[in-house]
Design a protein around this nucleic acid. Structure first.
Lengths: 205, 205
DNA sequence: AGCTGTGAATATGTTCACAGCG
DNA sequence: CGCTGTGAACATATTCACAGCT
């Protein structure tokens, strides 16, 4: 299977959101042009992105909305339920937990871990905080493949490596640190300070 | 001034972080190779990125750390203080407020707004929540140029447009919605569900 | 000799343009 | 005739390779 550029994956997610907003009773089909307008891209881009995974549009008509949605969800892995572990019972994890779009997409937070004895055992948005020492056992027991890492930068790489060895396959990393993990583990860095700096840069010119 | 690719700006921010971790008493100069290793890129990439803004390396030696840091901070606009307004007194804004790297970089949250009467007037991490009706006045009075937008998706575009008209120049947008703002306003979208989906996609193959 | 700065070569991603199906 | 699917053209970003300074 040829590699899919990261930018294309993000657009596919956007297409899902746009398609979800369509009343399929009224319109059962959508053209690349209309989908492009909704998603903020070009018609050619939409067609290229979709054709990468086969051709399910109808020439002269457009793409049938429901089958396309179903197909995109399958491609993106959104039909499966994803148990998610959060390490770092702070505000970022809390924000994600409260984020409605998170659960909607099948991401289910099944464990929240911290190393602070004050936090361990406390209720955290309906979940009991467990100690980070339990990490490996919980990953195995609950079949967790995805990790949200929201610990201070110095601790990040150590936790990530332990998690990877215990079976974690993907990490959403909020710590401003480079994670040293095996190649087969996918890391997605989210650095909020950096996003802000990109704005500051743009305004400084 | 030629356009700077977005990916390059992000790397420049990373270089700043890496350089900040260096003890300049011990090593006053760094080679592109060493900086590349620290930042997770290649030596050629580092040199290309830096040469874009002039040549301040010394052949045979490398780049002098302190002057390079100073130069990068100036380029990125990190020497200035940036007053920031947060609209949406929820968990995301709260997380940013608590995020240490935020204040460190000169981003100072000078106002937190919400439209919920229960929240307005309450203390929010040391700042009093003000009503979103006050937005335009506060933007002007406090000279705010940067906005963190963390409101529900349906409200996002309206708030953004009002803010833009009142003088906001850059928006860090956490709402999963396309903002309709004038071209001169820079928008940086952060979509956490989408980042998670990118992981799910990678693992689904 | 070591390392920068940079044009040239390559790789990657986007847009164009049109053949061909419905 | 409208709209998809896609190779070809284009644009952009990264890597190579080496001349030239220290």
């Amino acid at each position: 299977m040829p590699r899919v550029p990261d930018s294309a994956v993000r657009r596919l997610s956007l297409y899902v959101r746009c398609l979800e907003g369509i009343d399929t009773a009224a319109t059962s089909t959508i053209s690349s042009r209309d989908l492009a307008t909704a998603a903020g891209t070009t018609a050619a881009q939409v067609r290229k992105d979709l054709s990468r995974f086969g051709s399910f549009g109808k020439r002269g008509l457009g793409y049938p909305v429901d089958p396309l949605l179903e197909r995109l969800r399958t491609i993106l892995g959104l039909n499966a339920e994803w148990p998610v572990m959060v390490v770092g019972a702070g505000r970022i994890g809390s924000a994600l937990h409260a984020y409605p779009y998170f659960r909607e997409r099948g991401f289910r937070i099944v464990a929240v871990l911290d190393d602070d004895p004050v936090k361990v055992g406390s209720e955290w948005n309906g979940t009991t905080v467990e100690h980070v020492d339990q990490m490996e056992a919980i990953i195995c027991d609950r079949g967790v493949k995805l990790l949200v890492l929201a610990v201070p930068a110095p601790a990040a790489s150590g936790v990530a490596l332990r998690a990877a060895r215990a079976g974690i396959r993907g990490i959403l990393n909020f710590a401003p640190a480079r994670l040293e993990v095996p190649d087969e583990v996918v890391v997605n860095d989210v650095n909020l300070a950096l996003e802000m700096e990109a704005l500051a840069f743009a305004l400084s010119r």
